[in-house]
Structure formats: C-alpha cells, structure tokens
Write a protein that binds this DNA or RNA. Structure first.
Length: 171
DNA sequence: TGCACGATCTCG
DNA sequence: GAGATCGTGCAT
C-alpha cells in the first residue's frame, strides 16, 4: 500500500484519529529491517481551545510543531520515562495532533513509544519523507468504538467528556 | 532558580 | 496504592 499523503494529514484531528484506525505504521530500524504495525487505538487533541491539548498553553518550544502543517511527528516525554507518539494534523497554525495509543496487541501510549523506540530526535520528523517512520494506507475501518480520552481529568467537564478516543474493534 | 506535576506503567 | 524519573510551564 502507498504512504498516506499530505491531504490525509491536513484534515481535522478528530477525522484523522478515526481514519488512522487500521492504517499501517511502519518503523524502519537502524539495521535496515522494517516492522509493520496496524494502528488500533488513537486519541484526538484539537486546538488551543481544547483544554486537554498541550496547545491550550499556547505556542511554546514543546507545542511549536503542532502549529505546522499536518504530517509531522510530535513526541514528548511524560512522567520522565515514556515518549508519547503523536501525529500532527490540520493546516498550518491549527495546533492539533493525534496520539497513537495502540498498535496491534500493544495497547497503551507509553508502551507504543517504548516498542517503537521513540525519543527526542523524532520530534518534528516528517512522515512523508522520513526513512525511519511513516504510515501506509489500508482499507477503511467501519467497526470501531469511541470513548472519552484518558488521563485528562484536569481539562474540565466539556473537554474531558469528548468522545475523541477511537478504538478498532478487535475480535 | 525553584517547584509541582504530567495525554504512564509496573510491581506488590 | 506507591514509586520511578525528568522536561516543561509558571511562579518566585
């Protein structure tokens, strides 16, 4: 299957989060080998007004990449030990991202980052031209579930309850 | 310059 | 239920 193009990433995070389900995340390692994973769980973070989104703090060194056009990688360190993998979406100056929570049987954003060996140097990586991480197309998934996002109780009622967590229905 | 806390996970 | 472990944002 071919790589997802810029038009895919330019859509809103909520749309991209849903459509990324079932897509193939490819990781090319230092030794040249490749591992392919099916994306099974995602979460959308949509703009400065979304109190759960890091961009709600405005433009900072950390959130800067979210203000660029979609198709870039946004990684950040959480709890001093886990690198979280996100895909920047939307157009320029629309700070949005989709957190990859699950790939195949590896469920949990921290575990995903560990499996893919994410670290600071992936910040800003271009998914359209990178030779170590990219996403390929796959047939659209119709069987999925939604739920509230995890770990964002601080965001307040309105944003905490948005059903912006998407899960592929696994049999 | 200091400090509280986080889009988490593991072990007990 | 608590500890690991450190960059970030905001207060001082």
């Amino acid at each position: 299957m071919k790589k997802l193009g810029i038009e895919f990433y330019r859509q809103d995070a909520v749309i991209v989060a849903e459509k990324l389900l079932g897509k193939i995340l490819v990781r090319r390692w230092d030794d040249g080998s490749e591992t392919r994973y099916r994306i099974t769980e995602t979460e959308a973070y949509l703009g400065e007004e979304d109190k759960a989104c890091h961009a709600s703090k405005g433009r900072t060194p950390r959130t800067e990449i979210m203000y660029s056009e979609g198709g870039k990688v946004y990684v950040y360190l959480i709890y001093g030990m886990y690198w979280m993998l996100n895909v920047v979406t939307g157009n320029e100056n629309q700070p949005q991202a989709v957190l990859i929570r699950g790939i195949d049987k590896i469920i949990g954003s921290g575990k995903v980052g560990r499996e893919l060996k994410m670290y600071k140097s992936f910040y800003g990586e271009d998914l359209l031209s990178s030779d170590r991480i990219w996403i390929e197309d796959a047939p659209e998934i119709r069987e999925f579930t939604t739920a509230a996002r995890i770990g964002i109780d601080y965001a307040g009622d309105e944003w905490r309850d948005k059903p912006w967590r998407f899960m592929l229905v696994l049999i």
